[in-house]
Nucleic acid binder design. Sequence first.
DNA 1: CCAAAAGTGTTTCCGATACACCCATGA
DNA 2: TCATGGGTGTATCGGAAACACTTTTGG
Lengths: 231, 231
Amino acid sequence: MKYCYKYWRPSVATDCVIFGFTGKQLKVLLIKRNVEPFKDCWALPGGFLRESDNTAEECALRELKEETDLILTNDRIWQLGVSSEAARDPRTRVISLSFIALVTPSEVKGGDDASDAQWFNLNEIPSLAFDHAKILENAKEALKQKIHFEPIGYDLLGEEFTIPQVQALYESIQGVTYDRRNFARKIQTSGFLIPLDKKASGTAHRPAHLFSCDKELFRENARRLKFETKK
Amino acid sequence: MKYCYKYWRPSVATDCVIFGFTGKQLKVLLIKRNVEPFKDCWALPGGFLRESDNTAEECALRELKEETDLILTNDRIWQLGVSSEAARDPRTRVISLSFIALVTPSEVKGGDDASDAQWFNLNEIPSLAFDHAKILENAKEALKQKIHFEPIGYDLLGEEFTIPQVQALYESIQGVTYDRRNFARKIQTSGFLIPLDKKASGTAHRPAHLFSCDKELFRENARRLKFETKK
DNA sequence: CCAAAAGTGTTTCCGATACACCCATGA
DNA sequence: TCATGGGTGTATCGGAAACACTTTTGG
C-alpha cells in the first residue's frame, strides 16, 4: 500500500470502442479477459490510468496497443463518455472513461494476430464484462450522430474505396437502406471524392471505380451528409 | 493520510457548465474561488468526487447545490467530457468530469442570492481557473449541436415564453440571425407550442403571445429544429 | 400620432426523392 | 450468354428562403 492520500480517490480506467469495417460489415474489437473479475469474458480493450499517462487518451492508446497490437494516434480517438456508477466494478470504485476510434480494413486484418483480441460483427456481440454493453450501445449511437458532421466514414474505409462500399458503410451504421442512385449522386456532388482512375477487382460482375477522400475539403465545407428515404 | 492504495490513483472532480437565459441573453453561472489555487478567480462550480457520491452526476449536483444554492435533478444534467491533462491542476493530478445543465429564467434570478455565485453574459466571461475556459468553449459547442435534436431550448425558457424569445435564444446559441417570419412559421407548424391565450406585458410596443412547450410531443417526433439563412 | 416590435401570406427555388434502363465483368 | 451488380438521367414534390405590409400596444 504505497500510495496514500489525504482524501478518498477512485481508480480511473479507460475503455476503447474500436470500430472497423471490412467492406461489408461494421465490426468491433474485443478482448478476452484473462483475469478476474469477468475472467474469460469478452470486454472492451482498456485499463487503468497510470501516473505516467499524461492524458486519458494516452492511457487508452497505450492499453489498446498492449492488448490488441493496434497502434493508433491521438487524433484518431475521441471521447465518448464516463461511467461512474459505484457498483459497476465489483472490486473497487472504478471510473471508466470511454473512447471511440475507427480503423481501416487493413488494420482490421492486422488486429487478428493479437492472441486474445478478436473482431465481432455488431449483430453477434457476446455478453460483455462490466457495463461494456451499455458503453458499446452509446458508441453506436454516437457514431450515428457523428457521421453526419465529420468525414469519419472515410477513416473506416481506408485509402481506396468504391461508392457502393461507402453506401454499405453508411447503411450499416444507420441501420437503414438508401437508394443507390441518389446516394451516388449526393456523395459525388459533395466534392470530397477524388476519382482514382482505377477499378476494384475480384468481383464476379462489373467492377466499381475506386475513389479516395479529400478530408480537408470535407472539414472545410462541414456539410452534413445525410441520406434518407421515405419509403 | 488515511486512504492508502496498492496502485496510484488520481483525484476525480466534476465541473458544471450551467446555462441560463433571461429573455435576451444567454448566461453562465460561475463561482468565485475562495481557496488556492486560483483563489479569487472565477471558475465553474464543481468539486471532488466523494466516496458517498454514487455517480459523477450525483457529485456534480451536490457541489452545485453547495456552491450556488441551485437544486437540479439527474435528468437535467448531461455529460460533456473529460479533462485529464496531467498539468491541468497545479496541486495534484485531477481528472475533471464536466457536465452541462440548463435552467429557467426564474432559476437564474434565484441564483443571484448565493454569495459567491454570479451569472455572466457569454460575451463577458472573465478569465477562468484551471482549463475551465476550454471546458466552457466545449459546452457552447455541445449546446449548438444538441439544440437540433432535443427540446433543450424550452428548458432555458421556462413555462411561458413568446416566439421572439425563442428566436432570440436560438440566435444567441447559434450566433446567427434568422428571418422572423420563417422562424415563426417553422416553430409553430412544428406543433410543439401550446398557445396560452395570454400576452406578454411591460413592453413599449405590441405585446407578443405567450406559449408553452409540449416536450413529450417534441421528443416523440424527434424532429430537428434547424434554422438557416443563406444571406 | 408616432415609434417599435408583433403578426401574417405568397412566390421562388433548390435539394431530395422516386424511378428505369444500359453497361462491364467473370463464370 | 447470362447473372450480377455498377453506372447514369429525369420528372416530381416539398420544404426552405426571400420578401412587405398591416396590427397592436405604450408613450
